[in-house]
């Protein structure tokens, strides 16, 4: 909220509008600081980039890049690991009220999840580590850990890069039983 000193001398009738604007308050989600710390720790590349080049330049560059890409794509595919493992933290995924849960996803080149774990970041390291508590794990097939107990609730977080594709367009949905049980979890890609 801004002070009123700067509004001294404001033309009549505008002060009410200024007061209404001044009363507006937004806050980012609580987990954002931890996510930034995680990105810095993992040295993830910056998003975005310089302004786009003119169309003619882009066409010439694209042709060159395409030729190189076609040649290297096959080799890269042979050399790339079959799966990529991504660790994202910290969110409230179990309904316990604290943003202290992380998700580890092992994803194949076909973007299919091979393994999914939800853990509690017990040592507040911002990543899966020895002292953390794994609440749920599954392989490629979605499954319920146990029957269907009463009091289930749905939690989720979007959007992160969970498939290692470089875009923060994936979300995780968790069926939990507060305060700390998780019975199912799934990863999805948001349509842009």
């Amino acid at each position: 909220m801004t002070g009123a000193a700067d509004d001294a001398g404001m033309p009549p009738g505008l002060d009410e509008l200024a007061r209404r604007l001044d009363a507006i308050a937004f806050e980012p989600r609580a987990s954002l600081e931890a996510e930034i710390a995680g990105r810095m720790r993992r040295r993830e590349p910056l998003k975005g980039g310089p302004a786009r080049r003119p169309l003619a330049h882009r066409g010439a560059i694209a042709a060159g890049v395409l030729a190189i890409a076609l040649g290297t794509a096959m080799a890269a595919r042979r050399l790339a690991p079959a799966t990529v493992t991504v660790d994202r933290c910290c969110f409230d995924l179990d309904g316990g009220g604290d943003a202290d849960d992380g998700v580890v996803a092992r994803v194949g080149r076909d973007n299919v999840v091979r393994w999914l774990s939800i853990y509690e970041d017990a040592d507040r390291s911002g990543a899966l580590s020895r002292d953390d508590i794994v609440r749920y794990s599954r392989d490629g097939r979605p499954m319920l850990r146990e029957g269907q107990p009463a009091g289930l609730s749905l939690h989720g977080h979007c959007c992160l890069d969970l498939d290692g594709g470089g875009l923060a367009d994936d979300g995780v949905v968790v069926v939990g039983l507060a305060p700390d049980r998780i019975v199912a979890a799934s990863v999805y890609e948001r349509e842009r």
Binding site: E33, I36, A37, M40, R41, G96, D100, E120, A122, A127, L128, S129, R130, D132, I133, V134, R135, Y136, S137, P179, D180
Partner: peptide, 24 residues
Amino acid sequence: MTRPLQALPSPPPAGGAPAHAEPL
């Protein structure tokens, strides 16, 4: 939050606090 459901497969190596932590 209570006991672990299962042991971890392979914990990552421990490291000190990152240099950017303080300004962040």
